[in-house]
Amino acid sequence: MAIQWFPGHMHLTRKAIEERIKDIDVVIEMLDARLPGSSANPLLAELTGHKPALKVINKQDLADPTRTPLWLDWYNAKLETHAIALDASDAAPARKLIEGCRKLAPTRTGLAKPMRVLICGIPNVGKSTLINTLSDKRQAKTGDEAGVTKVEQRIVLADDFYLWDTPGMLWPRIVVDQSGDRLAASGAVGRNAYDEESVVLDLLAYLKLHYGAQLSERYKLGLEAAEIGALHDDEVLEKIARKRGAVMPGGKLNLQKASEIVLTDFRSGVLGRISLETPAEYEGWLAEAAIKEEARALKKAEMDKRKKRKAPSRERPRTPE
């Protein structure tokens, strides 16, 4: 089942961005370094597409160090876009944000023409932590739950540099199924919007092929990477459940508890530095989604035609002369 989550406050955020963007010079979009493609909001691109964009690939300390450079190159190849990678809790690289914005809008400087920046991103991507690091004080609320920030906040980073923080926002319909699963695994989606076991099975399907050794080491499975890769996703989860004591009375495995353990380990980084997609993989998923969307649109158009043909005519009967 496709994962969707767009609560009411996100609709309000969309409206706020539409209003604010008129006076903005640069848009900063925070991305999760473990899923830099899936965490990019297509709705945000639609709302702010004409503005210079600074893509901040955040949480790089949790991501695969061999994959993050690929994403930097991918984003830096786009027009009017500059990309940097950082860890929001590190004060030194966080300051690169101001420098990056200046490069994208060099004429915006001084009190007469202050830099006006909008910072956006999916829920739980680290925006508030970054803002607190930049401003050297806790101006924004932080937390490990999706949707902590609920209202727009104005942050003054310098006399001529204003930053508007917006609540985390997803988009009304996630058409790339793989992105939905990855967003849920990262903690960007509310807990009531997905089944944890289903998300973990998808996560394990990817990890067993690309990070099998890390899985084996974390959960003491005693298997080589190739051996783990040959297992079914359910088998991997069952082995983790046994190793972690997720067993109910009667010996039945508690797969829900095992799923929660895997999600917590992935989100906290104790599984190791992991990235759930490469630019090439993500482009492939986008292409697949585009084909499905085209087929969906054609099917809808055909259904609308049938309904129109079946609908009774509303023309008044002619009266005899």
Rank of each mutant, 00 (worst) to 15 (best):
I3M: 08
L12G: 01
R14Y: 06
R14Q: 13
K15E: 15
A16R: 15
E18Q: 15
I21G: 02
V26K: 04
A33M: 10
R34I: 09
S38T: 05
G49Y: 07
G49F: 10
P52R: 12
P52I: 06
A53C: 11
I57R: 08
Q60F: 00
Q60N: 09
D64G: 11
D64Q: 13
D64V: 07
T68Y: 05
T68A: 12
D73N: 13
D73Y: 01
N76Y: 10
A83P: 02
S89A: 11
D90A: 14
G100Q: 12
C101Q: 10
C101G: 09
T107S: 10
A112D: 14
P114N: 12
N124F: 00
S128Y: 03
T133I: 09
D136I: 00
K137S: 13
Q139W: 00
Q139N: 03
E152L: 14
L157A: 06
L157R: 01
D165C: 12
G168T: 09
Q178L: 10
L183F: 03
L183E: 08
A184Y: 12
A184C: 05
R191V: 03
N192H: 12
A193C: 14
E196L: 05
E197Y: 00
S198P: 00
V199S: 03
L204S: 03
L207E: 10
K208G: 00
L209G: 00
Y211F: 11
G212L: 05
A213P: 00
R218W: 03
E224R: 13
V236Q: 11
A241F: 03
R244D: 06
R244N: 06
A246D: 15
K252Y: 02
L253E: 06
A258T: 02
E260C: 01
T264L: 12
S268G: 14
V270D: 13
L271K: 04
L271H: 07
L271E: 10
R273K: 15
I274W: 10
E277S: 08
A280E: 15
E283G: 02
E283L: 14
G284M: 09
W285Q: 08
L286M: 14
I291Y: 01
R296E: 15
E302H: 13
K305D: 14
A311D: 06
R318E: 15
